[in-house]
Write a protein that binds this DNA or RNA. Structure first.
Lengths: 197, 197
DNA sequence: TCGCTTTCTTGACACTGTGTAAAGTTGACA
DNA sequence: TGTCAACTTTACACAGTGTCAAGAAAGCGA
């Protein structure tokens, strides 16, 4: 065997991705993924020790295919802090719907499963770094609200950009992605950027 | 039997509350609640059809004991819109840590259990009404941002006040309750209230 | 061509937690 | 004394995850 048609591992990842996306991260069991990949359930366990690991690997796989790091990094090349903030919000908010399926499945496991919690926390770390970078750019420009410490600003921006907030407005609240992005951008500016007198 | 010491039903609710609070809503099973109440697991099912119903009843029980409605209503009696907004944010944010245990358990069930989803949605409806009232007060004062429709403002305020955001800042992010409340208050003002020229 | 190794399949099973079912116990009350 | 309601005890069905062990099948080297 060895090289069947497509290698089994990526085929499992593709299957997981597809199911997670179409079912919005809900009710996707190990057996479903296996069937979708055209492989036995045990074969999945041959490649991934457990569900959390498979979901974690799926996120990384999506990141790779969608070149997420590149897109987030690009947002750091804008000129002044304000444009950088906007660019980062744009990049991240645009990213959320693309990973929402996996994100939701991963978030649902967090309470019971340490591995899932770690996988998700890791994912969020990248986002926080982007927030911190944007805040730093503002601070360097002197456009960060003067009574707002950079660390606090970073936390608040990360809060604003959380997947849960996207979920609440877009998925549950019926907001369009476009409207959501614009609203978050405005909120970020209103909350973090010093008002010019 | 009939009136043992304390009636069984409230004793179960108290037990659920206590466990949910001490364990932060995590890993509280029907059997645990039964044991804590000094009652058999089946007795719990004699009073509540399922876990979602028990959790829902527990929230309502807490609300009753803590007089939540009164506290939220009080926030509507402040004078101008801005004070009302602050008062409502204060009231709701102060409420979150008191129900966090049940809230978390209920939120964790949402994906699988329609009854749980409904119980939580119902809980959130009360909060949204408060948001809408605060926004309306602002609008009446003419202090709502002019280009922000009331409905949008309500959605954004509800987003800001979500339990998930509290969770992220206070529980996971190490913010003190006080700092959290102040930050949310400021963000609400910055995002919703028209800047005086 | 033989045998070894790797990858995958098949089928069975342990475990956890929810919810159901049925028979027995106990105290209140008429 | 008998009945009713509330509760206990025991057993079980069910779903989904993860484990285990016995094969099958293809590639590969000798």
């Amino acid at each position: 065997m060895s090289s069947d048609e497509a290698e089994t591992r990526p085929r499992i990842l593709e299957a997981a991705w597809r199911l997670l996306e179409t079912r919005a991260g809900q009710g996707v069991r190990m057996g479903d993924i296996a069937r979708e990949a055209g492989v036995s359930r045990q074969a999945v366990y041959l490649h991934f020790p457990n569900r959390a690991a498979l979901l974690g690997a799926t996120t990384r796989y999506i990141d790779e295919v969608k070149r997420v790091d590149d897109r987030l990094r690009a947002s750091r090349e804008a000129g002044d802090g304000l444009t950088r903030l906007d660019a980062f919000v744009d990049a991240w908010c645009g990213y959320i719907p693309e990973i929402y399926g996996v994100a939701r499945a991963l978030m649902a496991m967090q309470d019971d499963d340490d591995a899932a919690a770690e996988a998700w926390a890791d994912r969020m770390r990248a986002m926080r770094e982007g927030c911190a970078a944007a805040v730093k750019a503002l601070k360097n420009d002197g456009t960060l609200k003067p009574d707002l410490p950079a660390a606090a600003a970073t936390d608040l921006l990360a809060m604003l950009l959380s997947v849960r907030n996207w979920e609440q407005l877009v998925r549950d609240g019926g907001w369009s992605q476009r409207r959501y992005v614009e609203a978050i951008k405005r909120m970020a500016r209103d909350s973090l950027v010093a008002t010019k007198i």
